[in-house]
Nucleic acid binder design. Structure first.
Lengths: 153, 153
DNA sequence: AAATTTACTTGCATTTCGCAAGCAATGTGT
DNA sequence: ACACATTGCTTGCGAAATGCAAGTAAATTT
C-alpha cells in the first residue's frame, strides 16, 4: 500500500502524525494552542454546554477556530455532541470520561497560576484548599459537576 | 500617561496583554503552543541544559522558534541563563523555582497520556506508581533532579 | 591562524489565526 | 403561512506565526 497516505489526504480528514512517542508531546499534539484547554475549562469549571456559550467566553475565541477545535475534540473522543432535545437548533456538548480526566491537569495549572500570577483571581481560600487537600478539592469539583455546580461559573 | 503603551512599543519588548484574568488562561498565555512545555520537559525530565540539546529533541524544534521560546521563558522568570564556566561558548539554562513548580502539571499530563494514548511509552510500573502515590512520585523526581538523574533521560 | 563548536539570526515560503460577513436549519411570533 | 430571531456554523481575506535552510558571530580547539 505505498500511496495510502496520499490517497487519504485527498478524500478524508487525516490525523496529523504525532511528533514523538513522548506523553507530554501526546497532550500537546491535541492541546498545544491557546484555545483548546479553554473549551475544557468552560465545560468542566464553567458549566458551558453550547457553541454559543463557548463563543461568548471572556477570551473571545473566533467562531471558525472554535468550530475546528470542537471537531478535533470530538474526533479525539474528549467531547461528545448531541441535539438539544428541548431545542433542535441547539447542540449540547459534553465531556467524555477522557475529557473529565483532564481535571487534574487543569487543577495543577490553577494552582500554579494562583502562586505565580501576581494578579490571580483565584481566591486565597480556594488556593489553600487545593494546596492542602488536592484530592478532596478534585472530588468536590466532580461532585459539583453532577449537580450542575461549577467552580468558575 | 496617555501614550505610554505606544512609547513602549517602539523602544522595548512589550508583554502581550493577557486575554482574561482566568488562571487557566494565564498558563496558556505563556505555554499555549506546541513547544514551550517541551522545553520544560527537557529541563525537568531529560536533564537537558543547553540550546544544542534542546534543538536536538525528538520533536525537532526549529532553531528560531527555540530561541524565541527561551527568551520568553527567561522573561517570565521560568528559566535562567548563564555562561558555562567550563566552556564560554556554551550557555547553561536552568529552571527557577517557578519553572520547577510546573512539575505537577507535567505529571498530570503524563498520567493522562499513560491512560489514553494507546501507544504510550510510559511503562506500566511508572504509570502505576504515579497513580497510586502521586506525591511520592513527584518527590522522587525532585530528589533525582538534585542528583542529576532524570525520568525520561 | 584555520577549522570547529555553539548559539543564535535572517529570509522566505507555508500554515494558522483572527476578524467580519454570510448562510442554513430550526424556532417563534403574528 | 410567513416573516423574523436564534443557533451553529462556513467563507474570504489580511495578518501573524511557523518551519525550513542558510548564514553569522563569538569562543575553542587544532
Amino acid at each position: 500500500m505505498r500511496n495510502a497516505s496520499k490517497f487519504a489526504n485527498i478524500f478524508m480528514a487525516v490525523k496529523k502524525e504525532r511528533r514523538s512517542d513522548c506523553p507530554i508531546s501526546y497532550v500537546l499534539d491535541i492541546f498545544g494552542d491557546k484555545w483548546t484547554f479553554l473549551v475544557i475549562r468552560d465545560l468542566l469549571l464553567k458549566g458551558k454546554k453550547t457553541y454559543g456559550e463557548f463563543a461568548n467566553s471572556d477570551e473571545k475565541i473566533a467562531t471558525n477556530i472554535l468550530a475546528s477545535r470542537l471537531v478535533l475534540l470530538e474526533e479525539e473522543n474528549i467531547i461528545s455532541k448531541e441535539k438539544d432535545p428541548e431545542k433542535g437548533s441547539r447542540f449540547i456538548y459534553r465531556l467524555t470520561k477522557k475529557g473529565i480526566d483532564l481535571l487534574p491537569v487543569l487543577i495543577e495549572m490553577m494552582k500554579w497560576s494562583a502562586v505565580y500570577d501576581p494578579d490571580t483571581r483565584v481566591p486565597k481560600a480556594t488556593a489553600e484548599k487545593a494546596r492542602i487537600d488536592r484530592d478532596a478539592f478534585l472530588n468536590q469539583i466532580l461532585e459539583d459537576l453532577k449537580k450542575n455546580k461549577y467552580l468558575l461559573a
